[in-house]
Design a binder for these strands. Structure first.
Length: 648
RNA sequence: GGGCCCGUAGCUCAGCCAGGAUAGAGCGCCGGCCUCCUAAGCCGGUGGUCGGGGGUUCAAAUCCCCCCGGGCCCGCCA
């Protein structure tokens, strides 16, 4: 059995055999071999390369005999006809044989085979939670990065053969939702009605009311305390917000908040009553949150992102799940009182359950000299805290879906919180869950010079960026296809826009802080989603003009030279590359691979005509190669949410 | 104050976790290529003290230590 997984194509089969063979002979982990067996820096060293001497010298095995054993293994599986092995300066270099590989590929294509990620031999159940934006404002580009990454991860894991359950956590119990609700309560209007008056999507109406209410409260409180700086900030935010909505509604919120004796207290009271499930707060809050969610769903569906379940934070409380968790916590040996409040003694958890447990210690990294206070579970007034509810939610994710692994796609700013979550699970005896909870962290998207702020109402909405991208791609598509149907032009332009934005958010490494530059994001040239779509369309165009391909008439020798051979081998790496990208939760690796493949294809495209090739066996071979490239690009693009376009 | 992430070409980044074969792309800039499968393309040129300094190693962009710059996190907020 191999960690590479199953695939019918010769490259995947050779890869799989090499990983098993090297792992056996050298006595090292298959995963490690998989990581290191890669294309060498230069073509002349072959198609794949592995630093044998590094391990052979360590384990005292003779390098030559390692290569011989591996060669024997390939021979047993009848794979030596596809690849040569050579030992060169301490590296095991693999050279694929173009003609025999091509012959096999033609056979596969003739039988209807399509490129896809190598299939895992032991499928797991994954839960991927992503986006989970607070329902108080439209989705902005920060959420878009989260949604792009989360959705791509889900698609990749699913294609790899795992069972994947995708979830959105609705934080409706926070202060922010309560603030927005207070605003609507003062207005006495429903979010939907206000959206109609403002002629915007419901999430924009909620966002505006939230920001006006929040800053009104800030202004009132700051004035009372004599905090001039906060007051100035709030007033300037209000001045901007006044321009963005109906005057009378603006005034009504502002004066309504001003007449409250204790605005902060009103918000707290609203939160408390909501947690208890009391009317009318229960209906009011839900109505506001639902309006925002309605806007989210519209945006997400345009963005190509979908969810299997929407989990309300409040349901966790109302169903008694949070209360039961608190009961469990009280019985835990790590339960303690901190400043009089019920808490978990996390410093002790680190000493006793992390430091003393090798597996836990290697999987849950505690920073050196790390100082962490006990985690408070409940306020003195008896209401619960976010983290407590999050512990309950984590358990729900594991239980409800029967998950082996839960992946939380959450910003890097939540690292400490996610660590506390894992430590809390350990404290409550959920060791397996703690070890299989993955915080997929990524750096936030910043605006040039500052971070986005929904409180100040400063953010770049995803809808706006998509609209801008659409305008640009519409002009280009129209220009290139002057006689095309309007409906087709709009549809195509829209897919190009989504492809551009999604790819731009997925391609950079997730730990690089992304400073938002809409201009760059909408550059449709190389290194972009539209570049992939364009390349796909070019390949498809050749095939449409070529017509029927007789794969069995194709000449295998034709793909045994130069660019054609390299292109074929590179395309055949897709099953393995996409499999590894899924295992590593690394969409950016797949993105880089697709760009490289597209580059190679475009270079070949210039100099080697397909449909004008006079010799039929040669032409069919070239067309088969184009088929392989097109379908490989298409499969990869689908995994990243960049829709392949037959024409553009 | 403590901790974490980032720093590679004018700009945006890959390579770092798992040290090894002449540090790679793209954008930009300069110069070429559309009677021929879509020029969102191709070809050529330009461009690097891998933030700085020590150390480990036969070998360091990669590992360790110190420093500098930018960001983030340390609540009975979410």
């Amino acid at each position: 059995m191999s960690v590479v997984g199953r695939g019918k194509d010769p490259v995947t089969r050779v890869y799989s055999a090499l990983v098993e063979g090297l792992s056996d002979v050298l006595g090292i982990d298959q995963v490690q071999v998989f990581r290191l067996l890669q294309p060498p820096p230069r073509r002349e060293y072959g198609d794949l390369s592995f630093p044998v001497m590094r391990f052979a010298s360590k384990s005292g095995v003779d390098v030559e005999s390692v290569v011989e054993s591996v060669r024997g293994m390939l021979w047993e599986r009848n794979l030596l006809r596809f690849a040569d092995l050579r030992l060169e300066s301490g590296f095991l270099n693999v050279y694929f044989k173009g003609e025999d590989v091509a012959d096999e590929v033609f056979r596969l294509l003739a039988s209807g085979w399509k490129p896809s990620p190598a299939q895992v031999e032991e499928p797991k159940v994954y839960v991927v939670e992503h986006t989970s934006a607070n329902p108080i404002h439209p989705l902005h580009l920060g959420h878009a990065r989260n949604a792009s990454l989360g959705d791509s991860l889900a698609r990749m894991l699913r294609a790899r053969g795992h069972k994947v359950n995708v979830r959105f956590y609705i934080n409706d119990m926070g202060r922010q939702v309560a603030v927005a609700t207070l605003g609507f309560k003062i207005l006495g209007v429903s979010p939907e009605d206000l959206a109609r008056v403002m002629d915007v999507k419901p999430d924009y109406a909620v966002g505006w009311v939230y920001a006006v209410t929040h800053n009104s409260i800030d202004a009132v409180e700051a004035r009372r305390k004599g905090d001039t700086r906060t007051l100035d900030d709030a007033l300037s935010a209000l001045a901007r917000l006044k321009e963005k909505g109906p005057q009378d509604y603006f005034e009504k919120i502002l004066s309504g908040v001003s007449t409250l004796r204790d605005p902060e207290g009103a918000v707290s009271e609203l939160m408390k009553r909501y947690e208890e499930g009391l009317e009318p707060e229960k209906s009011l809050v839900r109505r506001v949150a639902k309006a925002a969610l309605e806007g989210f769903k519209e945006t997400l569906s345009r963005f190509g992102v979908s969810f299997d379940s929407w989990d309300w934070e409040s349901d966790l409380s109302w169903s008694g799940m949070v209360a039961r968790l608190l009961e469990e916590a009280r019985k835990s040996p790590y339960f303690t009182l901190h400043k009089g409040a019920p808490a978990l003694d996390l410093p002790r958890v680190i000493r006793e359950l992390v430091e003393a447990d090798t597996e836990v210690k290697t999987k849950i990294k505690i920073p050196r000299g790390f100082d962490i206070p006990p985690l408070i579970l409940m306020r003195s007034d008896g209401t619960t805290l976010y983290t407590t509810r999050d512990i309950a939610y984590t358990l729900l994710k594991f239980r409800e879906a029967g998950a082996d692994i839960v992946v939380n796609v959450i910003g890097a700013d939540q690292r400490l919180a996610q660590l506390q979550l894992k430590l809390s699970l350990l404290a409550l005896g959920y060791r397996k869950e703690a070890l299989n909870l993955v915080h997929y962290d990524y750096e936030i998207v910043r605006l040039p010079g500052r971070r986005m702020s929904s409180r100040r109402g400063e953010y770049v909405a995803l809808d706006e960026v998509l609209e801008e991208a659409f305008q640009r791609s519409y002009r280009e598509v129209k220009e290139r296809n002057p006689s095309a149907r309007e409906e087709w032009v709009r549809d195509t332009a829209w897919k190009v826009a989504v492809g551009a934005v999604r790819f731009a958010l997925e391609q950079p490494g997730r730990l690089k802080p992304v400073t938002l530059d809409v201009e760059k994001m909408l550059n449709f040239r190389e290194n972009s989603g539209p570049y992939l779509q364009y390349t796909y369309a070019r390949a498809n165009n050749i095939l449409e003009k070529h017509g029927h391909i007789d794969f069995l008439k194709a000449l295998p020798q034709a793909l045994d030279e130069g660019l054609r051979r390299d292109l074929m081998v590179e395309a055949l790496r897709f099953p393995v590359v996409s499999a590894k990208a899924a295992d590593d939760l690394a969409p950016e690796d797949l993105a880089s691979y697709l760009l490289r493949l597209a580059d190679m294809f475009n270079k070949w495209y210039e100099k080697d005509p397909v449909i004008h090739e006079p010799e039929e066996p040669l032409r069919h071979a070239k067309a088969a190669l184009v088929t392989l490239i097109r379908d490989t690009l298409g499969a990869g693009m689908n995994l990243l949410g960049v829709e392949p376009l037959p024409r553009m």
